[in-house]
Design a protein around this nucleic acid. Sequence first.
DNA 1: TTAGGGTTAG
Length: 448
Amino acid sequence: MIQHLQHCDQMIRFLHKVAKPFTSARQPQIHLPKHLKPERVNLTLKSYLKSDPIKTILLFSDLLRKKVSSVDSYSLLYVIKACAKKSLATEGKQAHTLVIKLGYEPIIFVQTSLIDMYAATSNVADVHKMFDEIPNKNVVCWTSLISAYVKNEKPYRALDIFRQMQIFNVEPDQVTLTVALSACADLGALDKGVWIHDLIYRKPEFSEDLSLMNALLNMYVKCGDIRKAKLLFDNIRIKDVRSWTSMIVGHALHGQGEEALRLFSALEEKNKSRSRKGHGTEDQILVPNDVMFIGVLMACSHAGMVEEGKRYFRTMIEEYGIKPRPFHFGCMVDLLCRRGLLKEAYSFILAMPIQPNAVIWRTLLGASGVHGNEELGAVARSKLRELDASLVGDDVTLSNIYAAKGMWEEKVMLRDEITQRRTPGCSSIEVKKLFSSMLVERSDYPLD
DNA sequence: TTAGGGTTAG
């Protein structure tokens, strides 16, 4: 029934053209040095950590097998960091066991790295165990713990730890505030974010920290204060790609798509003039990256600019050599769906060089509801069931599409099916504790 | 030589 959708649109042809190099990438062979001078061991482990963390781990186990005596706490530290970078839970645990065996446990650098490793492998229980075992916790230990909760999508807990840290009279530094602002952004906790902004304001040297300024900018964007965000953005003297990205995303999220694209063009213009003039340290070319293009595509999507979106998608690949990720494909599907171009969106999904994920199918399902296309709605829902049969929410969406179209027989059949499959639900209410305007339904929010 | 940081479709 949907053969007629397989029309050869220009965009689809483009996707077919670019798909090949993305799907045929081959893994390079890993070569390790056969002999290493003892004084080169840690230097080599450290350099691999930057270029290919897996090689750090492989070289380390090779050294252990050969019983190389120059392996020490520094070597293990690099291995722990490599495990964190690649989210390797088993290897991380093995490294921790070696730390205990070799007696490196009291070293605070090793302890904080272990916190970070457990955070990166989503093992929050062991994060806290590690933290509790440190006798003299400094600001880095506290920040690692806060960061662990932010990384594991528990921003409320992160802010709670941030508060506890101050009760224990540990002074937060720039890194702590950066992480705490990230938690505020995730929660939409503007009042707490403004409070942190005040702390930054009182320490002029903090305003020189670009990571911190970017975190502050992102907090204002996510908490909906776009005016403050723009004011801050204009006041950041030397911006980087992340500053520009946050601001572009900010405009896009607040229905100011054209402003977002104007900002992107301004960056491209600045880059052109910088390359003409030559550039010093303060005037570097800021090459747009994959995340910035997500902001640009979001802006097109929110402003309904389909042709511009397609053009930017091509520019990203052809001019900037960026390989599109699921996020980019998702933005393109969203762009087409919002304008009601459902058939084109479906053809686009089928032509994608990667497997469409649940978000992409759900975008099509949602748009099918908005634009009353029960046929594509049913296709999207069946794809979603293939991905996760336990969820009934998508069936409810489709049943509502049937109801809106007056297709009562189909609706009743689907509802009966849902009743047989569904598991009991539960709901919760929140009693405000920390924020006066917090509208959250979060797993880390205390229910006691 | 050693620890903790910011941008990402619905």
